[in-house]
Structure formats: structure tokens, C-alpha cells
């Protein structure tokens, strides 16, 4: 599951998601359209199956995005067990 870093925030914008990192401060504009909802990164939201209603191409895009967010420090990947 993927959780927002405690020092980061995210919100929905017309273009997709806007991330904010207080530690920079740093902004990240992610052109995702409606692919992901900010709630996905909150406690409880991350356990939902984000891939359930996605096409194969969208799944690959989401996976890449999540990995990129982890590398950039906005999101933490946590084990479910």
C-alpha cells in the first residue's frame, strides 16, 4: 500500500494531482486527470484496489506513477502485513 509521507500533502486539480512537500518546500504537478484520487494516499484509502476499474495501459501508468512518487519521497510504500 502507498501512503503519503507525513510531511507531504496532495489535492485534486483540473490537470490531476498536486503534491506539496514541506521539507523543500517542493511542489509536484502530476498530469493524471482522473486516474487517481487524493484519498488513495490517505490511511484507509490506500488499501482499496486502485486497479479494479483500470485498463491495462492505465494500470501500467499508475504503477509507474506510484514508483516515481516513492522515489521522489512524496509517498511511502508499506507492506500490508
Amino acid at each position: 500500500m502507498y501512503l503519503l509521507h507525513p510531511k507531504c500533502r496532495v489535492r485534486k486539480e483540473k490537470f490531476g494531482l498536486l503534491f506539496y512537500d514541506l521539507r523543500g518546500p517542493k511542489l509536484l504537478f502530476v498530469e493524471t486527470g482522473d486516474l487517481l484520487d487524493p484519498g488513495f494516499f490517505q490511511v484507509g484509502g490506500a488499501s482499496k484496489d486502485v486497479f479494479a476499474d483500470k485498463s491495462h495501459a492505465e494500470r501500467i501508468r499508475v504503477e509507474r506513477l506510484l514508483k516515481s512518487l516513492v522515489v521522489k519521497g512524496f509517498v511511502r510504500e508499506q507492506s500490508l502485513c
Binding site: 489535492r11 485534486k12 486539480e13 483540473k14 490537470f15 498536486l18 506539496y20 511542489l27 504537478f29 498530469e31
Partner: peptide, 15 residues
């Protein structure tokens, strides 16, 4: 590159 997102108008200020 990010300027274009900002110029579209954000839903609220960042700060």
C-alpha cells in the same frame, strides 16, 4: 514546464 498548470488556475493557493 509547471507554469502552464499554474496559469490554468489552481483550485486554491498552495500557501
Amino acid at each position: 514546464m509547471s507554469n502552464r498548470f499554474v496559469e490554468q488556475g489552481l483550485s486554491s493557493p498552495v500557501n
